[in-house]
Every structure is written in structure tokens, then in C-alpha cells.
Amino acid sequence: MNWFNNVRNRIPFISKRSTEDTLWHKCRDCNQMVFTKEYEENLSVCPECGFHGRIGPSARFLQLFDDMSWEELPAPKVKEDPLKFRDQKKYVDRLKAARSATGESDAFVNARGQIKGQDAVIGVQDFAFMGGSMGLAVGETFVRGARAAIEAQCPYIVFTASGGARMQEGGLSLMQMPKMTVAVEELREAGLPYIVVLTDPTSGGVMASYAMLGDIQISEPKALLAFTGRRVIENTIREKLPDNFQSAEYLLEHGMLDMIVERSALRDTLAQLIAFLAPSKQAA
């Protein structure tokens, strides 16, 4: 009945909250059913097991910026469907569906605001938009976010969530890896902090570029973080993998992260980091 709810939810005069699917939230980790309202009030963290659910840009901005106020940066215009790609569906149709489902123009959104009185630009990747995949739009938005931070002389904080490169943009999506790396370089040259918060799930080409280049590497608990997906590795080496393999905790243990921070503590942690790292005119 998923299609039915999808259609129903898009009809403006029927309240979205009224279907069973939206009233209850089922935790992806412990499978507990909790009231959606209670779940969202708990920052989309499961009140039963503490699992951090996936959230999009608006929810993230709402949780982090002062006074629930921020200025969203305009989405850049990029070439759409540069390869005229189609698999079983046309890429343009997939884009259209993702846009109507998320209300965003692509999988990455920037906003400028303050965190405990300190300026910051935050970029959030949206897994709900075609698996957060990285193509021309994500690459260009990231560059714009870094430049907005440079203009405002403030840190750039990026929340990653992505399956990797957007296959539908072929080699051009691969080229976003060096492109976004250049933006990280520009931040470094400007003496501004680049803080990465890895969220569930982040993998592939995203993991192998800007997601691992932060001055500070943070992750939310239990996030799935990988270069190569578990299934591919198991198929290649025909071995069973350790249970916590590619979790945030596993990455911390192997030296790839500075810290794991719960969502409820993120705002405080980021504020503290900015105070340590931001250019001195701004430092507390």
C-alpha cells in the first residue's frame, strides 16, 4: 500500500498525519513502534534504543541554529541530465520524483545562521533525495557553501549522508570528488575550519573525498560508514565480516574519527569547536 500512501500524502487537502504509516515510526534498528510525534520531539532519535534516524536539511537546521532561524542559500543552477541517462526509468523522471518527495531541488542544501551566537554555514546532504547521491548539483552546492563560509569568515560544517556518486551523471559525478576537494582547500587557505559530521549512511565516492577531509571528524552514533559496501566485500573475499564493521564506533576505534556525538549534544559540541577554531575576531 506504499504507493497509495505516497499518492495520498501528496494530496494537499488530506492531512499527512492521518495515515497509519505516518502516525507511527518504526525504528530501523530495534523495530520498535513509537509515535512519530514523540520520535520527532526526540530529534528523530529512537526513544527506546537511541538509534539516530535519518533527517533532512530542514530538521537539521532547526535543531542546530539559534532561535530556529537561518537563511537558506539559493540552490545553484547546473546542467540537468548531462548524459541523457536512462536505465529502467529516465533519470529526469527520477529527479522529478525525488523533488516532489523531498521538496528540495537536489541532495544538498546550505544555510547560514548562528550556533550559540557564532556564525556558521551548514551544508546538509539529504539521503531521501536519490540516496544523497553526488552529482553536479551536490558538487556545485558544496562549493557555494564553502565560499559562503569564506565570505562570512566562518566555519563550514557539513553533514554527509550518501550512497556515493550519482551513476546517472557518469564520469561527471566522479569529477565532483576533486572539485569538492578544491573547495576544502579554499577553506583551508582562508584559515577557516571545515567540520565534517558523518551521518547514517555515508559511503562510496562521498566517503572517499570530502567526507574524510574534515579538520575535525565527527559522527553520530551507530552510523553506517563505508567505502565499499558490506555485500560487495563479502562477495569479493567470501568471509563473514565483524558485526560492528563499518559502524561509527568501528571507525573511531580505527582512528578515522575524532569523536562520536549524540544528536542531542551536537549543538553544544559544534559551538565549542567553533569557539576553539574560528578566526580570532570571532572567538569567544
Binding site: M177, T181, M207, A208, S209, F245, Q246, H254
Partner: peptide, 23 residues
């Protein structure tokens, strides 16, 4: 794609190598 490669931060190594090319 393997356990040891992931364990020793394959993603970070690739990201830094790309970064080095650009520097």
C-alpha cells in the same frame, strides 16, 4: 574492497591522494 583496506581507511587514503594531486 576488503576488510583490511576498510580498517586502514581506504576512503581517507583515496581522499588524501586526490587532495595531493590538487596541491
Amino acid at each position: 574492497p576488503g576488510i583490511q583496506a576498510e580498517e586502514r581507511a581506504q576512503a581517507e587514503a583515496i581522499a588524501r591522494s586526490t587532495e595531493t594531486c590538487l596541491q
